Simulated scan of single mutants.
Amino acid sequence: MEDIFKSAIENLPVPALFLNEKGIIKFANITAKEIFNSDKLEEKNIRDIIPFPETKKIDEIISCDQKFNIIIPIGEILFDFVIKGNNKFNLAQMYGFDVTDLKRKERALNLAISQADEVKQMEKDFLAKVSHEVRSPLLVIEGFTELLIGEIDNNLRDEFEPFFYAINNSGKRLIRAFDLVLHNYQLHTRIYHPIFEKVNLREAVQNTHKAFYSFATEKKIKFTTHFNLTEDPIIETDQNSVEQILAILINNAFSFTLQGKISLQVYDTGDKIAVDVMDSGTGIPDDLFGILNRYFSGEYKGSLSSYEITGLGLETVKMFCDLIEAEMTVKTVYGEGSVFTFKVKKMNKKITEKKENQASNIYYLPSTKKPGNVI
């Protein structure tokens, strides 16, 4: 053994030992002797000092320059010993590091993570239960009020129909509010999983328009939809995400439009289909408009929840847009109204048949050539 090694590690603040191929301690520094409470460690077998793994052969560790770790409690201190073979000098070097505090913090961290997971599961269960317990009776109220509206005698229609519409629309708004909270939670916790499929955007817009039509009638706001298209707009996306985006934008338009009109414009921009949600409401003040534009462009990373005019809904819209790779822009004139534009890519017409390769997610074009023509 080289004396240079001894002099280099004799006064190290960590325990250091040199072992020969049989596991005999040939050198131990001062710190090692203090920790093991022995002045005569040399010539003892390391397996008699610590619980050295039986599967580890010290001669192999030395000849192959192997390295491994073993954590051992000595008294009240937990040591992480690093054993490294040195074939050149035919010995194994062994250094110990106090990891007591590190392991304590690790246990505390694991406990905190476990508790956080439990809280997250409790939140998930609570939201699911509340959503079910609230949605179920609201859906019953909605269904029966629609039935009653259809059965009202013509002589009583003018007197009672507005009341039934008010009940029906209030129930729908509560359902949308619970859906918004639930989807926001799912997106934030990344447990929402989109299902990408072929979607007819015309049908999605018409369904959303129909859901809000009675609400527009109650508020006496003109609510229209216009399709400036030569054919049905087919897109490949998550239909629920699209419908939630439209519902939130339309709901916001009604929230800030006391009178006037709200309209949906659907048109082709070339490679994308755009939907404008236009209202003649209060518009957005200049200071908030700047933040909102930066938020949708990704420049502003803060939260919108503190701004009353945007609230939770637009944060959810942004997350849905990011999820399906859609684009969102906004134009506004304070006191005159706003236009929120939602754009999503069209489905490629050239793909007339698509087969998904489950192993590699490769999409094949129909072809008479040999397999291998891929996009």
Rank of each mutant, 00 (worst) to 15 (best):
T237A: 15
V266N: 03
L109V: 08
Y363M: 07
F163D: 11
G270E: 05
K210N: 14
P371S: 08
S214P: 01
I262N: 05
Y295A: 00
K120V: 02
I245S: 04
I24F: 06
E315L: 03
S280T: 14
K84A: 15
I248S: 05
S263Q: 08
V181H: 06
F5R: 09
I284F: 07
Q358I: 05
S305T: 02
V82G: 03
I351Y: 12
A16T: 08
D59Q: 11
V330S: 03
H183A: 12
L174E: 12
P51E: 04
A116N: 12
L304V: 10
F160Y: 15
I273C: 10
T310E: 01
A16W: 02
K88C: 01
N184L: 06
V317F: 11
Q244N: 07
P53T: 08
I262F: 06
S131Q: 10
F89Q: 13
E60V: 09
N293K: 15
I70W: 00
L138T: 06
A253C: 02
T341R: 15
L180D: 11
T31F: 01
F163H: 12
A108C: 00
F89C: 03
F52N: 05
L288G: 07
F296R: 04
S305K: 07
H188W: 07
K56S: 09
N200T: 03
E142P: 00
A359V: 08
T230N: 14
S280F: 03
V374P: 00
T237N: 15
P371W: 08
V374C: 02
E356M: 15
F163N: 11
E76D: 15
I195R: 08
V14D: 14
V205R: 07
D158T: 06
K272Q: 09
F5S: 09
T282P: 00
Y334W: 06
I141Q: 02
K272V: 01
